[in-house]
Computed example of a mutant assay.
Amino acid sequence: MKLLFVGTNPENTGAATHFVTLAKAMSEAGHAVEGVVSRRGLIGEGFEAAHIPIHYSAFRNVYDVRGYTTVLRRVRAFKPDWLVGNFGKEYWPLIACGRLTHTPVALFRHRTPRMSKLSEYGIPRMAQRFIAVSNYARNAYLAWGVPPELVSISYNPVDTAQFRPDPELRALVRRELGIADDAIVLGYVGRMHGGKGVTTLMRAANEAMAVNDKLHVLWVGNGIEENMLHEMAASSGYAQRHHFTGWVADTERYCNTMSFLAFPSVEPETFGRVAIEAQACAAPVLGSNIGGIPETLQDKVTGFLIEPGNVAAWRDAIISLCDPARRDAMGQAARAFAIEHFGNAAVARDFEALLNRPHHSRPHGHHAHA
């Protein structure tokens, strides 16, 4: 199968990571893949690192002639079986290019906020595949009035060769951070703002630190509440056991360092890629029972689902995973779970099957795992 991925947003987001990893997964599975990408940002860098042929261009808006010219030129030369898009500003241009060249179009939707009435009606009906990244997101689109047969599910792939247990890297990063080898490291990866539940996690972690003197917290990311978290850590009495990295691109270094991960959002998440990345590194996950997060782990097997915003419940769950026997068993199950359901090979297999099925047959994807 030939696939032309078109993603010209110069951004560093989960959607961009999804786009790169899916393209890489399809290439590894033996499909011919090319990309039309921006010269700046994660997507271009990721395609280049994966040795996927790339052609630079951009869609500043739906009328940008440069983008159309590049895509149409590549379609005529490459003759792809599918155009694959990931970003809202490219939905209508790709549909137009697909119609002009008789090439089917597969479009991913990563967000649940509503589109314009025209886009909500037209895009799922005019694209040959309209794809949600979780069952939670799919249900949101059905609530818009999109017919169920038009919305498929394809979960985010995670490169489990990149995100894997690495004891040497774990020891190296802990030394860099000044964390003892035998410490228990609770990790957080993501933006730091109110909807992410970071203050709930800070309070719960501080209460758990009072119970277990080996517990540390590793904060990876930045955001508008970062300074507040620094202040809460400084006044907690456990400042030396809170470690802040700021924003980083290579999160696999830090996922490897963690004993387990917290995903404490108090507002719905469409999915939760970081939960899969952590599990691929054999780190169990504590996740809020909200939005698409329950689809990213197996409750009581690879981690625990917890009531959003409930400090006492989060404290108790953190203390529970300080038990090494429980944590190790869950970590082994987490790695197996990530490979089976979200590894490159599994997602490439399922995405190929999704593209090959008849257009109006019943949508399918992975089942929810909560």
Rank of each mutant, 00 (worst) to 15 (best):
K2M: 04
N12I: 15
H18G: 09
V20N: 13
K24D: 14
V33N: 09
V36R: 10
V36H: 06
V36Y: 01
V37N: 03
R39W: 07
I52C: 05
S57C: 02
D64L: 09
T69M: 15
V71H: 01
V75G: 01
A77V: 00
K79E: 04
L83H: 07
V84M: 13
N86A: 07
N86W: 10
L94A: 06
I95N: 07
A96G: 06
V105D: 07
F108S: 07
H110F: 12
R111V: 13
R114H: 02
L118N: 11
L118Y: 11
M126E: 13
N135A: 12
N135V: 08
Y136L: 11
N139G: 11
V146P: 10
S152R: 13
I153L: 12
V158A: 05
D159R: 10
R164C: 15
R164D: 14
P165R: 09
L169V: 09
R174L: 03
A180K: 04
V189W: 02
R191F: 05
M192N: 03
G195C: 05
G195M: 03
T199F: 05
T200M: 05
N206W: 07
N206Q: 13
D213F: 02
L215Q: 09
V217W: 00
G223R: 11
G223E: 05
I224K: 15
M228W: 08
A233F: 00
G237A: 03
G237D: 02
H242C: 10
C255Q: 12
S259H: 00
F260I: 08
L261M: 05
P264W: 00
V266S: 01
E267F: 11
V285H: 02
I293V: 11
L297Q: 08
D299M: 13
A312W: 06
A313D: 09
R315Q: 15
R315G: 14
P324H: 10
D328I: 15
M330L: 07
F342L: 07
G343Q: 06
A353K: 06
L355I: 06
L355A: 07
H359D: 12
H359Y: 08
H364L: 12
H367E: 12
H369I: 01
